[in-house]
Design a protein around this nucleic acid. Structure first.
Lengths: 141, 141
DNA sequence: TATACATATGAACATATAATCATACGTGAG
DNA sequence: CTCACGTATGATTATATGTTCATATGTATA
């Protein structure tokens, strides 16, 4: 847990050399020292982009349902399409997206291709999300 | 997202034998019994939608960076904008999205509003994602 | 080889969405 | 009250993306 680093209360930093190119919060509200300290520990932009891509991949109802099905059993594309009421094309397109983020793996058996979750780690990620929405009391659909 | 037809096509297929209205995989590749068995355990459509919304919220580089900053310390809107090089408006908009999924909480102090992660559970979800991209050897940005 | 079937993929279209701009809201000071 | 400032939000616009349709690829069989 990269919990709260102390020094959380150093308001009114000296900041004589304030970054004047920022149009809002000229001087008062910017906690300069804290910001500069945390800035060094921030996730690099590329990594943030990469992580966002992972979550974005999971951020579609169809893909969630595919993940949910694969969390219970491996399926060929045709089975998934039937199970979820999707077209073969849509199913294949979505599996491609899931593959690109290493969320699912596949094996070929004759003409059929069987998909499954890539590893237990993916399952853990999926379940974390499930737990979160189970806790919250957001409006039901 | 886009053409996601409401409620899909035909959930809860009526017949236990074979749904002949699916144009692909007439008979051969569909493992009917397995499908019917797993179908009962699938996540409901509404819940899938809800879970997708959660992941979608995390699926943006800017929001990932906000989450990363808040994982290290609480910040007011102005600080976040400065720290991440965003406009005040963009920051506020994104915080609103994060709020709507209960990913962040806030407290008012005078004119300023301080944001932080909603709970440790959110942190766990975020870290699961981080671990996944650390394992994989996807192309670096 | 030719045919059938399961899957993959490119193009096009419609929808979703993040940033910007302008402006409204809320709080504290005078 | 009025003003200043930090924050929130509606409208607009450019970009991203999921589905469908048509077609290509890959595999097995006759």
């Amino acid at each position: 847990m990269a919990g709260n680093t102390e020094e959380s209360k150093n308001r009114l930093s000296e900041s004589t050399t304030q970054s004047s190119d920022i149009p809002v919060c000229e001087i008062l509200c910017v906690h300069t020292d804290l910001i500069e300290s945390v800035r060094k520990t921030l996730i690099p932009g590329g990594q943030a982009h990469h992580l966002a891509d992972l979550f974005k991949t999971l951020g579609d109802p169809t893909r969630v349902r595919i993940m949910d099905a694969l969390a219970k059993n491996e399926f060929c594309v045709c089975d998934l399409a039937e199970l979820l009421g999707l077209s073969q094309s849509a199913t294949s397109h979505q599996l491609r997206v899931l593959r690109s983020d290493n969320l699912v793996k596949y094996r070929r058996e004759g003409k059929m291709v069987y998909y499954s979750l890539d590893d237990d780690h993916v399952m853990a990620l999926y379940r974390e999300g499930l737990e979160h929405i189970s806790e919250g009391r957001k409006e039901t659909y």
